[in-house]
Design a protein around this nucleic acid. Sequence first.
DNA 1: ATAGTGACCGCGT
DNA 2: AACGCGGCCACTA
Length: 127
Amino acid sequence: MKNYPELYLTIWKAVRGVRKGRVATYGQIAQICGLRGHARLVGYALHNLPPNSDIPWHRIVNTKGMISLRAHTKGHELQEKLLESEGVKFLNGRIDLSKYGADVEPGAGSRKAPGARRRRRSVDKHK
DNA sequence: ATAGTGACCGCGT
DNA sequence: AACGCGGCCACTA
């Protein structure tokens, strides 16, 4: 058993905070870990999940409310199964985030939180 | 030390 | 509405 990077532990801990019957997005988890906007790292960490972890990794989906794992894979199938067993319903392969989204952030239910404007780092490449 | 990859996100066309 | 592209960070060869 190798030692896992601390960042992974941090992320996994955050994932553990997601209550049953709820789902969180990669972005949300990233934000909790202080990695605001860097959801990829969350995905990376989850990809390296230890096999016998108690981490509810299946409660993590992308911002569209869909399973990010490659379809036709065991993981994808398993995730959907686990979520349904927790009461999370899939509508056309999609989860209603405004309904099942974890309250990791105030106003997370609203897609556009007024004032909660995140840093716009988009440089005007226009010129 | 450099390069490549990844269970993503947001914006532009 | 759907598709494509770039960007950011950490980890592995």
